[in-house]
């Protein structure tokens, strides 16, 4: 949807909540909340953002487990020397290596998952105010064509400390 991003920066949480309410009243419920503190989900009446972080360690663990299985089974089958009447593919002996492989896959994929699901790294910041990390609240909304000035006024009416508009293209 074409439109312009508008950032409202609020000193008080209540002011940000009031502005968010007004955005919703005006049919703009797809706003983003920026904060230096993790507020409980839905504190601003915002849509709850989804993430798939739990898939990452699961996929990583499965990949690590498969690789470990490949290595252990592969090496045993490559040199099939029966020892003490034990089967060539003995699961108890493969367990530890499979465990370590699984854990390695899970750890690395989780770290990558945190980065990916956070949509990081960001080389260039979009509309942002450094005061947000100090405790201010930011509300970002993509205003429909011709509505940016109305959002600007709406934020200012809610006592925004500052409002930034994306330059018109």
């Amino acid at each position: 949807m074409a439109g312009r991003s508008v950032l409202g920066v609020f000193r008080e949480v209540d002011e940000a909540v009031e502005a968010a309410d007004k955005l919703k009243e005006n049919g703009m419920d797809n706003f983003e909340v920026l904060s230096g503190t993790p507020f409980p989900e839905g504190a601003f009446g915002e849509k709850v953002a989804n993430h798939r972080l739990y898939v990452w360690p699961l996929m990583g663990a499965m990949l690590g487990f498969s690789l470990a299985l490949l290595v252990t089974a592969g090496t045993q089958l490559a040199y099939p020397l029966v020892t003490g009447g034990k089967p060539i593919l003995a699961l108890p002996a493969m367990f530890i290596i499979a465990y370590e492989g699984t854990m390695l896959g899970a750890i690395i994929s989780t770290i990558i998952g945190v980065i990916f699901e956070s949509r990081l790294p960001k080389a260039k910041l979009d509309l942002y105010d450094p005061r947000i990390t100090e405790g201010y609240i930011g509300l970002v909304v993509v205003a429909p064509e011709g509505e940016a000035e109305r959002v600007d006024a709406l934020f200012k009416a809610a006592n925004a400390a500052d409002v930034q508009l994306e330059p018109a293209s």
């Binding site: 904060s35 993430h51 972080l53 945190v114």
Partner: peptide, 23 residues
């Protein structure tokens, strides 16, 4: 890494800390 504190980022961070902690 350009962290700005969106809701998505906070959710991912919380979940990531949980999983990394468990591991």
């Amino acid at each position: 890494l350009g962290w700005v504190g969106t809701k998505r980022q906070w959710r991912a961070l919380r979940a990531g800390l949980g999983v990394l902690g468990a591991l």
